[in-house]
Amino acid sequence: MRHWWVWVWLCLGATLFPPVHAAGPSTDKVLNPGAELWNEVRGRQAAPATTQVQGRDSQVLVNEWGEHFRDYRRQRFVRYSGYLLAGVVSLLLLYHLLHGGLEVTESGRKVLRFELTERIVHWLLAGVFLLLTVTGVVLAFGRFVVLPWSGPEVFAVIASASKEGHNLFGPLFIVALLWFFVLFVGRNLPRLVDIYWLIRAGGMLGGGHPAAGFFNGGEKIWFWILTIGGLAVSTSGVVLDFPALVEGRNPLVLALVVHGIAAVVLIAASFGHMYLGTLGVKGSLEGMKSGLVDEAWAHAHHVLWYEELNRKAQAESSAREQGQ
């Protein structure tokens, strides 16, 4: 199992990478001694090579993954992730133009939705995520988007700053993500009502708001995308941040692929989250800023939570009455 990562790579990259080396050993009538040598060099017989130079993969004469990496990065990653991000943005824009944001008439009474610590951790995670997104996007797409009008000198400064910032802020993301996970996982465990909510597409089908608890089905999906995607970017990020953890360059390439795909998925999903948290559902942002949401908002979007809250308040007040 020395090459376990090849399998991981194959599974992950199967759709992105066409088989390249289908050609078998030379079928020429006369064997070319040079061809034999180069077969050897390419490692097809897996004969270990040696060198006196110390360095990462110094003994490897020909890096077989090099061309795949180039193909993945230039032909696929940049193109498809660009499509994905632009697609999500335009879908959201289209939705907003056709449908508009959800708004409920305010009752004026506020209930506490998020504690101070929860809000702080949310914005810590959001802030770090934003910094990583900006720096990451500069590294991934800057050459095609920023460089043409900024010129190489200016872009080099931006990119260098992005690289350092990205490497430094990465570990903060892990800390924030773990903290966030601990705080919110309890309320994000899937429940039956969430499936119903999802079938109704959160109220887009069938009219009216389907019932939801503290978090609805959509929010829970986002939470788990964030958790799993976050785990993927974090582990691959740790490998990239601490290259000494792995040997050779292939694990680094693999990590880079995982990192890029997971990050793009996260960014695309976060666009949806940001839209729904601000323009999409009015009053949500306030809940994460001050911690307070309007009772009408709570009733409209999270009726089960709202009812539970009322039950608790009633139980408390009756207990207080009994106590006196």
Binding site: L124, L168, L172, V175
Partner: peptide
């Protein structure tokens, strides 16, 4: 890293 987390926590606390 630690100083950054600290500063961000303090700042977020100040704002929130």
């Amino acid at each position: 890293e630690l100083a950054f987390i600290g500063l961000m926590l303090l700042w977020l606390n100040r704002v929130l």
